[in-house]
Nucleic acid binder design. Structure first.
Length: 893
RNA sequence: GGGCGGUUAGCUCAGCGGUAGAGCACCUGCCUUACACGCAGGGGGCCGACAGUUCGAACCUGUCACCGCCCACCA
């Protein structure tokens, strides 16, 4: 391991000193390499259970990733670095399945590009998660019999910081267990000093550019939280309420108007009744007034297009203080707003003595009672509609007018729309780009202030009517800082550049902005992705990333959402304990898709099977004398070598395309098949039959390990370490090199071999021939099996006879195999039925193909190669049918 | 109310215009000295319904039926 360290240090020195003068990076990298890189034993720490030792099974790999990612970039290439900023997990959070999938994906991308020679940077860090964290600490305080208010702001914040020290960041350790090669050395936190500086700078700049302003406006008030929340934090839920019809007497005593409402308590704040100007039923009332029951206030009847004539009575009570629509109507007509529900979620004194202090629900009941007593209730009926609830606290959102800070989004959105339209930023799958655009085009102001303590306090000071926005209080006495903090997403929006030292022009910022890819779940496209694009463009003049990959959502096995509260969550850490991190990573990637998928434990088990397979295959190859570290690919000695080399080369090419397309499910599948089907089931079997050379087997294993490594870093690293000739970490291995290109001759020969071996195995099963029994076979094959005759005899356990033998005919696409075994051993009836069915299938296909060829419209219109394909099929099926006829005849049919 | 996605083998999912695929589960053989967390062989599907386009449709178009998600200020 000392050699490895030295080599890495040497390479780092050489590399970094040439790298665009990034002095601080050079020093940091060298320090890490020299003093902090764990030894190989730490990197590949294998927890070997008693069971695995006793049974000789492979180790269960549950280790942690290296502390420091290795940069293997070639600065001479001039390629831009490959950069991903992790979606910062909540500092107090625990790793869940979404994190596990998303970070597996990112690690594949990072490792893949690192091995491909890119300089890579995977920005690491956590989010302070204002509301979630504050809520957790508050809960703890309640258990201790105290509260946030009791402690006071300063003591409370101190407490949160301590909480963070104690419980925060465990998720980062969990990412290590997953094997993620983040840049742990440069871990950031959205509340660290440098980051706070960036947040302040952005707020002040946006204020100075006129994009941030303070206003009395209708906000979503979360009474549970005691704070305003943004539109995106509101969730509409269907609720069945009662729709009450209430009579409002006309002020002149000439009758009444009837309005309908599900919130009778808000009538206390009504300042008008609106009707549609086109409505003949009510037109004559416009400009007159009604007396608001229970209150006695005289309010006008106004005309507004917003009122529907086909709903309810056509009369709308207008409560500008507590309904977003009414708020707009109020602004249009200059109506006063009478707030009757306060920020504490209770009725205000303005609601009247009789109602003040009640909850809205209590007030509603009392209002209804009172109206009924006065004979003003006209009707009540059940009514199902959607009602806003807080995503955060679960409380029913109370729309009310409040003085808050807003960010005007329209100007910021314009260029962010453009970059997605013109493809500068590309979503995968592409449909999410449309979703993004639709939202951006109808973007509304963002309420960025929160009435919380944990977060970035607004850089705003007040003195009387004076307002100062800036990093510090202005000179002079009496300035008080705004107690509110910023929406957590405000700071998250700066993540791609604030983590790199902005607003300073640091070397990291110059080197690693803009990033390459953002990988995330779709639920934060608006909350986070869109805002990063806007802020990146506004403050760096460049998009923060070129590609946005939206991964699938993994649901519980029963199709419900995976969530702790539903009890449907599955803990990825337990899966790591049970199957190892590689198995989890692989399984999740295999599951992932363009659409939502249900979690299936089988996929994780499949991952584990691949781990085991690689381990066992490595043992075999090493035992046979295979080694790693060939400077140039060893010359293939056999057809099997050539064939397998071609398979690896093909897989390599395909894998590259799949990574580029973010198709991780297919990538996982491709590698699984390469290892199981091609390398183990065929090539290693051929190797055992001395039809492959250990030199090539070792080299191919090395390439396969390198290819699989981004998905399964632990087992591949362990296998690699066990190979003679292996030096250094596989993680910084050169990219897998295609051993040889296509090899038509070898591929054809091995295909013939596979067909013959498979046909004989099938025959053996049907004819109930013991696997150990060697069969005498005469091949009528036009010499097709000659190049692989020895392999054929070994794998099919046959002895080739030069002269014809009597017995059974086994058909292969290129001829017939005569097996010297009496057909009597076979269940004649069953065999005849089976062959008959097979013949029928072939016959049907033949008829279909002939039918197509007989159709003049097909032969004249379809592309030539498809017509040729059909002709070839006819030839093939005719031959197959003849062979089947022959076998049926031999059976005496 | 608007939009998006889904409906394919018992289960979880691929395939998206030219003979229906994988893994798991199932059945039958094998402890073949890398691996029984394995190997070999096999059974199983009118591709949600209906109509249309096409020489040809699981795949394209339309309608419908369920299921899921997102957006939305009709009291």
């Amino acid at each position: 391991s000392d050699d490895a360290l030295t080599a890495i240090a040497d390479r780092a020195l050489e590399r970094e000193t040439g790298a665009r003068g990034l002095r601080s990076i050079v020093e940091a990298a060298l320090m890490d390499v020299m003093f902090e890189l764990p030894s190989r034993d730490d990197v590949i720490k294998c927890a070997v259970t008693r069971d695995t030792i006793e049974r000789g099974l492979p180790p269960t790999l549950v280790t942690e990733a290296p502390d420091r990612q290795q940069r293997a970039a070639d600065p001479a290439s001039g390629r831009p670095p490959y950069v991903i900023a992790i979606p910062p997990p909540n500092v107090t959070g625990a790793l869940h399945m979404g994190h596990a999938l998303n970070n597996s994906i990112q690690d594949v991308l990072i490792r893949w590009h690192r091995m491909a020679g890119f300089e890579t940077e995977w920005i690491c860090g956590t989010d302070h998660a204002g509301i979630a964290t504050q809520a957790q600490v508050e809960k703890a305080l309640v258990r201790e019999g105290t509260s946030r208010r009791e402690l006071g702001r300063a003591a409370f914040l101190e407490r949160v910081w301590r909480w963070r020290e104690e419980y925060g960041g465990t998720i980062i350790g969990q990412l290590r267990r997953l094997g993620c090669t983040l840049d742990y050395a440069r871990e950031r936190f959205t509340m660290d000093d440098g980051y706070a500086r960036a947040v302040t700078r952005v707020f002040v700049a946006l204020y100075e550019r006129g994009l941030i302003y303070r206003d009395h406006y209708m906000v979503n008030w979360d009474p549970g939280l005691g704070s305003a929340i943004s539109d995106l934090e509101v969730e509409e839920r269907e609720v069945t309420d009662t729709l009450w019809s209430i009579a409002y007497p006309l002020a002149d005593g000439a009758g009444e108007l009837v309005v309908a409402t599900v919130r009778p308590e808000t009538m206390l704040g009504d300042t008008a009744v609106a009707v549609n100007p086109e409505d003949p039923r009510h037109r004559h009332l416009i400009g007159r007034s009604v007396v608001l029951p229970l209150v006695g206030r005289e309010i006008p009847v106004i005309a507004d297009d917003y009122v529907r004539t086909d709903f309810g009575t056509g009369c709308l009570k207008v409560t500008p203080a507590h309904d977003p629509n009414d708020f707009e109507i109020g602004r249009r007509h200059g109506l006063p707003a009478v707030p009757v529900i306060g920020e504490d979620g209770r009725m205000t004194p303005e609601a009247g003595e009789r109602y003040a202090g009640l909850t809205p629900a209590e007030a509603a009941a009392r209002v209804v009672d009172d109206l009924r007593a006065q004979g003003l209730l006209r009707a009540e009926e059940p009514y199902t509609h959607t009602v806003p609830f807080s995503h955060r606290s679960g409380a029913r959102v109370e729309p009310l007018i409040s003085l808050q800070w807003f960010c005007d989004m329209e100007r910021l959105a314009a260029p962010a729309i453009e970059v997605v339209r013109d493809g500068t930023v590309r979503f995968t799958p592409g449909q999410w780009g449309d979703v993004y655009l639709r939202w951006m085009q109808e973007i509304r102001p963002w309420c960025v202030s929160r009435q919380l303590w944990w977060g970035h306090q607004l850089p705003v000071w007040y003195r009387g009517d004076e307002v100062h926005v800036g990093p510090e209080a202005p000179a002079g006495e009496g300035w008080e800082r705004d107690p509110d903090v910023l929406d957590t997403w405000f700071s998250s929006a700066l993540w791609p550049f604030a983590t790199l030292g902005w607003p300073d022009e640091t070397p990291e910022l110059r080197a690693f902005y803009p990033g390459s890819v953002l990988s995330t779940a779709r639920d934060i496209i608006f909350l986070w992705v869109a805002r990063m694009v806007m802020m990146g463009l506004e403050f760096r003049g460049e998009v923060p990333f070129r590609d946005v990959y939206i991964h699938s959502v993994i649901q519980a096995p029963d199709g419900r959402r995976m969530s702790k509260s539903l009890g449907t969550g599955i803990d990825p850490l337990e899966l790591i304990d049970e199957h190892g991190a590689d198995a989890l990573r692989f399984g999740l990637l295999l599951m992932s898709s363009q659409q939502d998928v249900r979690f299936s434990a089988e996929k994780i088990r499949q991952g584990r099977q691949l781990v085991t397979k690689l381990w066992n295959a490595s043992r075999l190859v090493v035992a046979r004398g295979g080694r790693a570290g060939h400077a140039t690919p060893p010359e293939p000695a056999t057809l099997a070598d050539r064939w397998m080399g071609a398979r690896v080369a093909a897989a390599l090419e395909e894998a590259g395309a799949l990574v580029a397309a973010y198709d991780f499910s297919r990538l996982a599948k491709l590698l699984y098949e390469l290892v199981f089907d091609d390398y183990c089931d065929w090539y290693l079997e051929l190797l055992k039959a001395d039809e492959g050379s250990p030199e090539v087997a070792g080299d191919l294993l090395e390439q396969i390990l390198a290819l699989v490594h981004p998905l399964m870093p632990f087992v591949t690293e362990a296998c690699w370490e066990g190979m003679p000739g292996a030096a250094g970490l596989l993680a910084v291995h050169a990219p897998p090199r295609p051993p040889h290109g296509r090899d038509a001759e070898a591929e054809a020969a091995i295909r013939d071999l596979q067909e013959a071996v498979t046909a004989l195995r099938a025959y053996r099963n049907q004819a109930d021939v013991p696997p150990r029994e060697t069969l005498r076979v005469h091949a009528e094959d036009g010499g097709r099996l000659a190049p692989t005759a020895a392999a054929f005899q070994a794998l099919a356990r046959v002895e080739l006879a030069a002269t014809p033998v009597d017995g059974t005919i086994v058909a292969v696409p290129f001829g017939r195999l005569h097996v010297a075994r009496a057909a009597a051993a076979i269940d004649m009836g069953a065999e005849r039925a089976r062959l008959g069915a097979e013949r029928e299938r072939v016959e049907a296909e033949l008829r279909r193909a002939e039918g197509m060829l007989a159709n003049e419209r097909f032969t004249s219109r379809a592309p030539a190669h498809l017509v040729d394909a059909e002709r070839a099929k006819v030839t093939r099926y005719t031959a197959a049918r003849a062979a089947l006829d022959e076998r049926l005849a031999a059976l005496g049919a």
